[in-house]
Design a binder for these strands. Structure first.
Lengths: 128, 128
DNA sequence: AGCTGTCAACGAAAACATTCGTAGGTCAAT
DNA sequence: ATTGACCTACGAATGTTTTCGTTGACAGCT
């Protein structure tokens, strides 16, 4: 298993769509992106072709309009970015990242409860 | 007030040093970086000059060896990156980012307590 | 058969980021 | 006054990412 490269910004935007929609054609992706990125169709196509080369996406060529799907699980990519960011922006402190995220971006009551539960669990683990 | 551009990777590494050390010369920054980045002195210099142009750092030219300092508070930059990342990698869900960070990167007991406290506070706010 | 709209492929330009060599200035010690 | 160490400035090469124009193929319609 060759390690896949870290997606660039543009690639990330595409992955986001693929994760959300599941396997999609270039046109579908391009249209989903349209709001966020003002860019031509061939740009999206090219990017997706490059991603296929890199192995970031799988491509089904059986019909004329190819079907692309993400090869990386979303969670794994998220982990990669979080790790990177903790090192590069938070000087290694994951707690600082969490605090920053929590204090500026409010979560719902349910989410807060979920997070709290995770913390309790972590604390239990510490005791042992 | 002109909005400052998002720092690139290399710039971030330099900012990191400036935040930690306070105002520093190019040499000091370069030496601090040395472990992490295998790059020549003039590369660091150039990067810092560019950052000065962009407004990311302030430069005191009064003595021959210039003194550079970060113009952005660390917390503000962290906020910028977190916000960006929530949008681009977590599809807008801050809670997911927090969960991801907490579950893969363990924090100390004290930090966990601190985070928990912040959550309790948030929950109180929700009630009102 | 000829037209039209849609597609993938490709190549090249443009934009951006990183790297370093070289030159010229200043300062202090010899 | 010359040398050597150290500094900034500048310009150019390299590398990476993004962008798009053009081409040729295919499919459906008239």
């Amino acid at each position: 298993m060759t390690k896949l490269p870290k997606p660039t910004e543009g690639e990330l935007a595409i992955l986001q769509v693929l994760w959300q929609r599941g396997p999609s054609t270039v046109r579908q992706v391009h249209e989903s992106l349209d709001a966020a990125r003002a860019t031509g169709y061939t740009t999206t196509l090219k990017l997706m072709q490059i991603m296929a080369e890199k192995g970031l996406v799988a491509r089904d060529q059986s019909s004329r309009t190819h079907l692309y799907s993400a090869r990386l699980p979303q969670a794994q990519t998220q982990r990669q970015f979080v790790t990177d960011m903790i090192a590069k922006v938070f000087g290694g402190s994951s707690a600082q990242l969490v605090m920053q995220a929590l204090s500026t971006h409010t979560a719902s009551k349910e989410e807060l409860a979920e997070i709290r539960q995770l913390i309790e669990q972590k604390k239990e683990e510490k005791k042992r």
